[in-house]
Structure formats: structure tokens, C-alpha cells
Amino acid sequence: MATTGGELSGVMSELGLDRQNKGTLGRLLAHGSLAQAEEGPDGRMHAQIRIPPDELVWEPSILVLPHGGDLELEIFNDDDNTHCAVLPSNGDNQFIWLVNHSRGTASLNLDGPGYYWYGSRTGNDEGRGLTGAIVVLGDAPPEARLDRPEQPRP
């Protein structure tokens, strides 16, 4: 039986796919919460992500940026176990080690639009649920667009 988008979170919960070691072994990726980054007066974006206890999930697991650019990220590990993060950024991936109950920061540059995965590379944190998405909204800059009439989109 198919499920509509609106029913999805309820059915996920019912089947135990939104938590650890319930319906299946881990937690299905990208089924946590969603939040939007805040943009400062200087155009830099800011957001917080955290790892709650025993859930092996990034909260939010989907972080939305209004456009490409610089993101200042504050990262909390509220879990009773040690994790880390490998985060996408132009230049090189950014790495931070996150012992139990730690707080750190990261500076990322993403030129979007598109979405980017990040995760904790220790053990199989990535597979159990500690894989999150950063979604960048927006368009390519005007100078990069094709010289043609506006075309239909899906």
C-alpha cells in the first residue's frame, strides 16, 4: 500500500523507522527534522545542529540555506557517545571530532543550488542515521544562464 507524503511521518513512526533498533537496525536517513539557516546582515548564514542522546541523528537532519555562500555552523553532541562530522565545503571537507557532550564550530562555503550530504565517519554512524543534508536553494547567477527563452520545468 502506498503512502502519501502527508502520512509518511506517521507511518514511519508506526513502523519504527524513525528511531534506533525498532523497525529495523538503524534510523532511516534524512527523516529527522528540518530547519532553515538564519542570514546575518553581512550575508553570512548561521545554524545549529545537534546529536541528541541515543538517536544517532542530526537535528535538524535537513538544514536549508536560502542561497549559496558562507555558513557558520555550531555543532553540539548531546549524546553519551563520541561522534564526529565530515562536512562539505569548497576547498576541502571540514572535519571535527565530537566527544560526548561537546560543542564545536565549522565554517563552510557551498555555492549551490543543490544538496550536500555530511556525516559522522566513525563506525557506521553514517548508516545508522548520522547522515544529514544541507540543502542550498537559489539559482545559478544571471551571467551563467543560457541565452534562450524561458523553458518549462517539471
Binding site: 555552523l73 555543532i75 553540539f76 553532541n77 562530522a85 565530515v86 562536512l87 576547498g91 576541502d92 571537507n93 571540514q94 572535519f95 571535527i96 571530532w97 565530537l98 566527544v99 560526548n100 557532550h101 561537546s102 560543542r103 564545536g104 564550530t105 565549522a106 565554517s107
Partner: peptide
């Protein structure tokens, strides 16, 4: 209540190579 341990600022992944 537990004080957060300071995890510092993320570093380039390549610096660990």
C-alpha cells in the same frame, strides 16, 4: 547539567593526512 567540552573549530580534512 554538564558543561560542554570544547570541540574547537573544524579543520581541513586533508590536515589529518
Amino acid at each position: 547539567t554538564t558543561e560542554y567540552v570544547d570541540a574547537g573549530h573544524a579543520v581541513r580534512h586533508a590536515s589529518l593526512s
